[in-house]
Computed example of a mutant assay.
Amino acid sequence: MTEQVLDQALIEEATKKSGLIWVRGDGTPSAGTPGAGEPAQALWHVWHDGAACLVGDGPGEQPLPGLADGGEAVVTVRSKDKGGRVVAWTARVVELASGSEAWQETVAELKGKRLNAPDGEEMPARWARECRVLRLEPLAGTLPLPDGSLAAAPAPSPVTTRQPIPEAVPRLLFRKRKRS
């Protein structure tokens, strides 16, 4: 019993303090292993009422791949100061019904933490129309932290690495102007 209470306290404190959590969803409510086949995704969140709360899957918001209502997810929390993994835990995914009391309370918390929102005070109405609000509720205890790197190869993309600038550009940008 004491170990379970300590695990819950660790999950809550680490998740509250971290700006990002890494989430890997299983995509379905009845899949076998949580997160099987899905890459983990860094997501911003708010800890509210005993769960990590997220908003996404709408225009201008973070994608929430593999997170289905009633499914499970594996959440890995990093240290805010060092960036290393602190704790990993399994969560039940609960999608909040738009406009419900729980949705309104959660959106009020999320709204305060959303950075660079394009629509300010209209954000909750846009979230109600176009986005999903999810709660990741911790299930039993913590998971063992994996050994080694979990880095994945970058997804294929037409984007290329920037080439060196031509030698003349610094002279053109930083030359001293003659005063008349």
Score class of each variant (00 low, 15 high):
R85T: 00
A88I: 00
T90R: 09
T90F: 05
A91I: 01
A91H: 00
A91V: 00
V94C: 02
E95Q: 07
E95N: 03
L96E: 12
L96D: 00
A97M: 00
G99T: 02
G99A: 04
S100R: 06
A102T: 11
W103Y: 05
E105T: 06
E105V: 02
E105S: 13
E105Y: 01
V107W: 07
A108W: 01
A108R: 10
E109Q: 15
L110M: 08
L110P: 13
K113T: 13
R114S: 11
R114M: 15
L115V: 15
N116V: 12
N116F: 08
A117G: 15
P118C: 01
P118W: 15
D119K: 09
E121R: 09
P124G: 00
R126H: 14
R126D: 06
R126E: 12
W127N: 07
A128N: 06
A128H: 08
R129V: 00
E130A: 15
E130F: 15
E130V: 02
C131W: 05
L134T: 04
R135S: 03
R135Q: 08
L136S: 08
E137Q: 13
P138E: 01
L139F: 02
L139D: 07
A140K: 10
G141F: 04
T142R: 09
T142C: 10
L143W: 04
L143G: 10
P144S: 07
L145A: 02
L145Y: 09
L145M: 06
L145Q: 06
P146W: 07
D147G: 05
S149L: 10
A152S: 04
S157A: 05
V159P: 01
V159L: 11
T160S: 11
T161P: 10
R162T: 13
Q163K: 15
Q163N: 05
P164K: 03
P164L: 11
P164R: 12
I165V: 12
I165E: 15
I165C: 03
P166D: 12
E167L: 14
